[in-house]
Design a protein around this nucleic acid. Structure first.
Length: 655
DNA sequence: TTTAGGG
DNA sequence: CCCTAAA
């Protein structure tokens, strides 16, 4: 028979496709904000949840964070130290620190409407969740974050810029070896207790995982610290999680309260972030951290941000799934504090261990990815680590599916997973992992996962519907992420060099948003902004996190992409309204936007509303593409006219 | 389905 | 843009 050993892989993160820029101040000075769709946010939630659970699995106390409580920035509103203390096993809360973030590069992630605020990933948000999914991009650093997917304990990526210090740091880090060594036991223990069966299917794992209720639920999450740009780090991983700056309130404290076995639903409630959240963030973002950016040393456990209050939180919207965002800083997750020395890691032993059946041997300690600093550009964000387990006999296709399930369930169906082994894209889904070389212990076999747009074309909002302005639908995807799109089945060329100049491209893109006209596909570097940076990856062992997928499809309803009205559109709208009047949006739609399917009458109505508002405010206060004053004047005139007319009609009707 | 408005 | 109550 074929050996049924399993490989545990850990994701240090995914690099996500860029998200359309949401907005920035009129003068371009403001923070660049990005909005993530609900499902994307959910990804964080789920991944964070997974991480959190894993974290919980560990009974080993995490290194204490001395800075906790000391750091002025660190202030979790409701975090009760005493509470933590009460629980011996509970993890200490640590502030998540966002390292040096270029203020300008802060990304704000928004969820939907009301929740929008709460889902603001940006630590700046005052939302209650205030989770630490802060995406902060340091455009300065060209190093792209990498996705490590490795087997073996503690991977060290020598190529990684962080790698150099990471090794060293690792040793010093409290979280290093000991921690790692211990963890497995704890996991094992738990496993034995909870999982009698040796046969562990992913599903079972998941179940078990979920099954570990109480303790898990009560665990406090600990925000992890984050860090900063790898470049500047002088003392990376200063060895402890102590020095991390407070990430402040971004890390939500969550506690799982309710568990729904059937649905694997966990609801959580977040605490309200400190009022001064903004300030804190600002501080973090403030200059001065340059060169001294603290390295975040977060191991995946740490990443598991604070969890706290538990409570069944009825979600208003069904769109929101079961999982609430955990307070986790994706960034933090990426910066792992636990590392093993390379030699150690790469040893066959570890590898072997890694492949042991998790069910019988217990889970391995999740490997830490040496993905030090995550630098996110405006167009991408990193998701917390995700651990999965698959038998070596699994096919590449199944591996993809497994990963996809985890990711898709979170992100929605817009993406599919691509797998790269040593930088090469594996296209044959029928190959087994062994055949592909993924199962080999050789460290050289790097495995990378990439998220690619499923659809041939991503729908990026064209600047204008106006034919004259639209260079073609094909451009949709091109804007910032042409390279992102490796169409299924086609180009992989770009993927070969896994990651390339990601950095450079990103930086450039961040700074300048190419106009549509200038961004034809041809100009876009094929490889660059690839979705994923597939850095050299070292394999390491990890704990498996069974990922569960709900049968089916989540009800993620993606928020429509923002499509600012172009001047021609505004013109058309104004003209139609002048003629038809307000209140007849359907007719306006038919008349002026008949062929523009993405402009609904509601959109037109909304646009009119904003136009009226825009026309009333001073030019200085206006944002976005300036609308000719002439049009605005017409807006006001039409608005006044029709308002008056409606009023009169009402009077008549009344009489 | 449309409107109208608040979020 | 989203979400919805009303119409």
């Amino acid at each position: 028979m074929v050996l049924q050993r399993r490989l545990d892989y850990g994701f240090s993160g995914y690099r996500m496709p860029e998200v359309p820029r949401a907005s920035r101040s009129a003068r371009g000075r403001g923070p660049i904000r990005k909005k993530l769709d609900a499902n994307q946010i959910h990804a964080f939630e789920i991944l964070a949840s997974v991480a959190g659970k894993l974290l919980q699995e560990s009974k080993d106390p995490l290194p204490t964070n001395d800075s906790f409580g000391k750091d002025p920035h660190f202030k979790f509103g409701g975090i009760t130290k005493s509470k933590q203390q009460d629980k011996g096993r509970s993890l200490k809360e640590e502030p998540c620190e966002l390292g040096s973030c270029d203020e300008e590069t802060f990304l704000y992630v928004h969820g939907l409407q009301e929740r929008r605020k709460s889902y603001t990933l940006n630590g700046v948000s005052h939302s209650q969740e205030n989770f630490s999914y802060e995406i902060n991009s340091v455009s300065k650093s060209l190093d792209s974050e990498r996705i490590n997917f490795g087997k073996g304990l503690g991977a060290v990526d020598s190529r990684n810029s962080c790698g150099s210090h990471s090794n060293k740091v690792v040793n010093d880090s409290p979280l290093s070896e000991d921690s790692i060594a211990e963890k497995p036991q704890g996991l094992l223990k738990r496993k034995q207790v909870t999982e009698p069966s040796q046969d562990t299917s992913i599903k079972e794992e998941r179940t078990e995982f979920l099954g570990s209720s109480e303790d898990v639920m009560e665990m406090e999450e600990r925000p992890h610290e984050l860090v900063s740009s790898r470049h500047d780090v002088k003392t990376p991983f200063s060895g402890d999680c102590k020095n991390h700056g407070p990430f402040l309130g971004h890390c939500a404290n969550i506690r799982v309260v309710n568990r729904d076995d059937d649905k694997n639903t966990m609801t959580r409630e977040f605490e309200h972030p400190p009022e001064d959240g903004d300030k804190k963030i600002t501080n973090l973002a403030a200059p001065g951290h340059d060169g001294k950016i603290r390295q975040a040393n977060c191991n995946w456990r740490t990443c598991y941000a604070h969890q706290r209050s538990q409570k069944i939180y009825p979600f208003k919207k069904r769109k929101f799934f079961n999982w609430r965002p955990l307070a986790t800083s994706d960034r933090g997750c990426n910066c792992e504090g636990i590392f093993n020395t390379p030699d150690k890691i790469l040893k066959g032993d570890n590898c072997c261990a890694a492949v042991r059946s998790s069910s019988t041997t217990g889970q391995q300690v999740p490997p830490k990815s040496n993905d030090c600093n995550v630098k996110l550009s405006i167009k991408s964000f990193k998701v917390p680590e995700l651990f999965i387990e698959v038998p070596t006999t699994a096919t590449v296709g199944s591996l993809k599916r497994t990963v996809m399930e985890a990711v898709t369930s979170i992100l929605g169906d817009g993406l599919h997973v691509g797998i790269l082994v040593q930088g090469k894209k594996v296209r044959d889904d029928n190959k087994t992992l062994l055949q592909t070389g993924i199962s080999q212990d050789d460290k050289r076999h790097n495995l990378g996962f990439i998220l690619e747009p499923k659809r041939a074309k991503l729908t990026y909002p064209p600047c204008s519907e106006d034919p004259s302005l639209v260079s073609g639908r094909s451009q949709e995807l091109t804007r910032h992420s042409a390279s992102l799109v490796s169409q299924p089945g086609t180009s992989d060329v770009s993927m070969s060099p896994p990651v390339l100049s990601l950095g450079g491209c990103i930086e450039r893109d961040c700074k300048e948003v190419p106009s549509l006209a200038s961004t034809s596909t041809d100009k876009t570097p094929p490889t660059s902004q690839a979705l994923v940076a597939v850095p050299p990856i070292s394999m390491k062992a990890l704990a498996v996190v069974p990922f569960h997928r709900k049968s089916g499809h989540q009800e993620y309803v993606q928020r429509r992409i923002r499509r600012p009205f172009s001047v021609p559109e505004v013109e058309a709208l104004v003209q139609a309204v002048e003629k038809l009047g307000t209140g007849r949006w359907r007719d306006v739609k038919l008349r002026a936007f008949e062929s523009t399917k993405h402009r609904t009458y509601v959109d037109l109505k909304d646009k009119w509303k904003t136009l009226v508002h825009t026309a009333r405010i001073s030019p200085q206060q206006r944002r976005g593409e300036p609308v000719p004053q002439e049009l605005l004047d017409r807006v006001l005139a039409a608005h006044a006219y029709w308002s008056q007319r409606h009023a009169k009609q009402q009077v008549k009707a009344a009489v």
